[in-house]
């Protein structure tokens, strides 16, 4: 696949992927889609990249784009990464972007004259994490579709299942990547918001294992899904870093404050309201108690993907305007 369209191209993940493709000799053309009218020179000045501003929730605009620009450019593969990132936003408009757009894009691509591959970036949060479930999560793990599941997760599960339902049913090759959380700013990462707070509170007596994906590995996984001939199916994409929650807090140089679990929900709700933060304890309740680590063996076997880039806490810490002393200390570690 040498001609690629990417949705969500102005997000950190989308932009990094566009950059990677732009400098890849095997790629001829990249059509980058974003909501912003001016994505900045970082994207506009890249070789081989054509940028289009589009509100994906407008069905007519999406249809027009698919059957004009996409057709004319001979786009062969679509990489769909656009989801609403803020977990605190809910409602039908958000659902429309997360699920409706995915459905529509999928339907349009199915009978498109040039598109032959559809890569959907899903999320590890679609899996249910509980005490009686395996700590190492395979692709057949139960999904998180309970009635109390927040919309942020429910939408992702619905979109994921909808894309999965088309595998083998349409002429395109369909790949779903269930990715571990990317710990990066503006990527919708709950844990990034959590560890960027001055104090990290967590449930007393529990210290679950978590897995985190670096931006570099996320880009590599998307690339593998794009270029691996005949690859189709669902793949877990774990990151290089598997560690207890307390170690992550320690690594980020934050005070670790274990507290009785019942206090955490109201405290984080209050914090969310006062500081307009994205972290929602109700969304992370189970994974703050029980381990959930993605098993990436299928991605390794089929896509040849293996995580190799660990997180770089010093770079992340810069975003929090940490003191130089703290950053020096972390560099030494």
């Amino acid at each position: 696949m040498t001609r690629v369209m990417i949705t969500g191209a102005t997000t950190p993940i989308g932009a990094s992927f566009v950059r990677r493709l732009a400098f890849d000799d095997a790629i001829e053309q990249v059509l980058a889609l974003g909501l912003e009218s001016d994505p900045g020179p970082e994207l506009l000045e890249l070789p081989k990249v054509v940028y289009r501003q589009i509100d994906l929730t407008r069905g007519r605009s999406l249809r027009d784009l698919l059957f004009t620009d996409v057709k004319q450019l001979g786009i062969e593969a679509v990489v769909h990464t656009a989801h609403h990132r803020r977990a605190t936003d809910e409602g039908p408009r958000i659902h429309r972007l997360n699920v409706g757009v995915t459905r529509e894009l999928m339907q349009l691509c199915q009978h498109h004259p040039t598109v032959r591959r559809f890569v959907h970036r899903s999320h590890g949060a679609v899996y249910k994490v509980k005490a009686d479930q395996p700590a190492v999560i395979g692709e057949d793990h139960p999904l998180n579709l309970g009635p109390s599941t927040p919309q942020w997760i429910r939408d992702r599960v619905e979109a994921d299942l909808m894309v999965c339902s088309q595998m083998g049913m349409c002429p395109m090759k369909v790949v779903v990547l269930r990715c571990a959380e990317v710990l990066a700013p503006r990527s919708g990462s709950q844990l990034y918001d959590y560890v960027s707070s001055r104090v990290c509170m967590r449930p007393l007596g529990y210290d679950p294992m978590i897995n985190l994906l670096s931006l570099d590995d996320q880009v590599e996984a998307l690339y593998r899904a794009l270029v691996t001939e005949d690859a189709q199916g669902v793949f877990n994409i774990p990151g290089r870093d598997t560690l207890p929650l307390s170690e992550l807090i320690h690594m980020m140089g934050r005070p670790d404050v274990p507290m009785p679990g019942v206090l955490l929900s109201p405290l984080y709700r209050l914090r969310g309201r006062l500081e307009r933060r994205e972290f929602r304890y109700d969304m992370n309740h189970w994974r703050f108690h029980f381990s959930g680590v993605l098993d990436g063996r299928r991605a390794k076997a089929v896509l040849g993907y293996e995580p190799s880039h660990p997180l770089r806490p010093t770079e992340l810490a810069v975003h929090w305007h940490m003191g130089e002393d703290t950053i020096d200390l972390m560099r030494q570690q």
Partner: peptide
Amino acid sequence: DHFVPLLPIVGTFFARAGGVGGSRGNVRA
């Protein structure tokens, strides 16, 4: 047994020492 990981401190300590919850997926892995 499935209830052990539910126990605060004890469940975590057992996991650090090598214990695993008795789900089919865990033992298979």
